[in-house]
Write a protein that binds this DNA or RNA. Sequence first.
DNA 1: CTGAAAGCGCTTACAG
DNA 2: CTGAAAGCGCTTACAG
Lengths: 354, 354
Amino acid sequence: MTAVDPAAPTGRAAKGVPVARRGRRRGETTVAVVARLAGVSAPTVSKVLNGHPGVAAETRERVEQVLREQNYRRPDAVTQAPMLEVAFQALESHLAIEIMRGVAQVAGARQLAVGFTETASAPGWLDQVLRRRPVAVIAVYGAAMRREHARLAASGIPLVALDPTGEPVHSVPSVGAANWNGGLTATRHLLELGHRRIAMIGGPPGFLAARARLDGFRAAMDAAGAPVEASLLRSGTLSYEDGLRHGRDLLALSAPPTAVFCCNDLLALGVYEAARRAGRRVPDDLSVVGFDDLEFARWSGPALTTVRQPLAEMGAAAAELALTLAAGDVPPRLRVELATDLVLRASTASPFAA
Amino acid sequence: MTAVDPAAPTGRAAKGVPVARRGRRRGETTVAVVARLAGVSAPTVSKVLNGHPGVAAETRERVEQVLREQNYRRPDAVTQAPMLEVAFQALESHLAIEIMRGVAQVAGARQLAVGFTETASAPGWLDQVLRRRPVAVIAVYGAAMRREHARLAASGIPLVALDPTGEPVHSVPSVGAANWNGGLTATRHLLELGHRRIAMIGGPPGFLAARARLDGFRAAMDAAGAPVEASLLRSGTLSYEDGLRHGRDLLALSAPPTAVFCCNDLLALGVYEAARRAGRRVPDDLSVVGFDDLEFARWSGPALTTVRQPLAEMGAAAAELALTLAAGDVPPRLRVELATDLVLRASTASPFAA
DNA sequence: CTGAAAGCGCTTACAG
DNA sequence: CTGAAAGCGCTTACAG
């Protein structure tokens, strides 16, 4: 019993799961079984399992389905140096660091490595990830689509979406923030200051989180009996450039808004610049509210009032969720939604002051 | 000054780290090898490995010793995906994302996972890293000290410092930026605009990169015959708060500077805020130059003129260097220093205009 | 793209 | 207690 087990440090998984054994696997689905059920050979199953090329798409799908149905597990799945993979669609995301910090914290406490992938720049990323066999994958902001999900599922690797959409279509467990509420709160704040002509610069059409923020905005406006003019409703990419463009257009209106609610902080900074160029002061001539609360929000001039997404906590929650699924446990809920807060700083004021 | 072009394929780019495989294990100690060295059969080694009964105590000990000597690992442990570990001292570092992007790019092209550690928040990080057996470790901004270096070296894991200091003391291969040159160029720019009373807010004493920037500043001032007044030379942490504090103090001087060169962008943003509070305009009343060129530099108001460190390229160069060392090759040079550029934006102007 | 055959590393069952 | 032989599950190399 006291035998030395040199592999123990790397080999032992976090949870008390039995150590994988190489020989006979009692009652477990084997590659051979999967091959028979899928009507292919063992080598083909092996290729699918490892994301190797040289398998027809149709064959791959059939094998993946059997793999899923039979809940295939690799014999060494448990024995691996456990790691948690985080896939970002694009690293330009200013949210990335905060999220990584949350993930790293949870993973570190569990002695788990954190892997890191930028999907946009690496077309074959999923093959690589499959080869690495992480304990779970966290996909940030749409980094994993339906097809990827299927392949991960086939390999028995749970996927968690860190994504504000909460889109239930994919039925992927997910972590997000209270976007609708954030939009509501931000808008209420502006209404309470006395604003009525409030513009909103929204996000791209397909982005559900942006839609939720917009809906929150509308709800607050409706509740206050404030009209939402079409000319004050803009949308674009969540970028500084689009903030600048829309800000300029809004300020050039014959009846410009007295306040702008921006779908993220980058847009807000673009509006800042538009105001500067138009000779308007924030907040005296124009109130601005952002969304995200990126670190630079409090360093901007004036410090930006914004809706805070708790990104580190979201990362941590995603990691917790992923690890629960990886352990084969059923998480208390498949959708975790964290609260947003309005952070009051110096970019909003009453429209009557000026 | 530029030494490594990450995009350029080296002589044998395909070389790299062996991909994990289930079958053959090249060069790894197998049960068969251990058995031969211990003068027993493979089944006996297997029993020892798994703590099964039916092995004489003496035999067991002999086997265990060989196991240890040969650093035997279970094949599943070997199946671990090769990975490159990046250790950040603190994730708050605003440089982290850019660096990670560069590392991820190189690693992705080589099918390598990128691991991710925040050392400040994880005291036992090195133990964890050693357990993971990364192909190499990249330590960002002082994340690895002399002791860690020794332990990594003992485990045959190469260490690369991504660090502006270029401190030759530890003889750790490193990647940095041309800090002295950056300081010189930034200061020259201000001198050419006509400034003479130029302040500098430097970094903490122990931080050699900050010292290099300061020395570059002095060199430019000396060359121009501009005096460096002690009251215009400040130092502190590389933070917004210290920028604000020193900015306020500098502007309160009876003869305030007409320009400030800041040791990083955060300090510059603090100076912005100090100027706003003092009712001074940038750049009309005060020119400001930063260092780093973080993304938000171009979104600040006014857009910040700053010295760009090519962080992504630095990350990529560090990864290349690390992989070269991991492959057992001798890199062309042990210190890679990438060039810095002055990025002219809207925060500097002639002192005569106002 | 596919799979028969060979092979790998480890374990099991069993004879000595 | 020990190990030759058989076997397991998976992967690789290669011919079709």
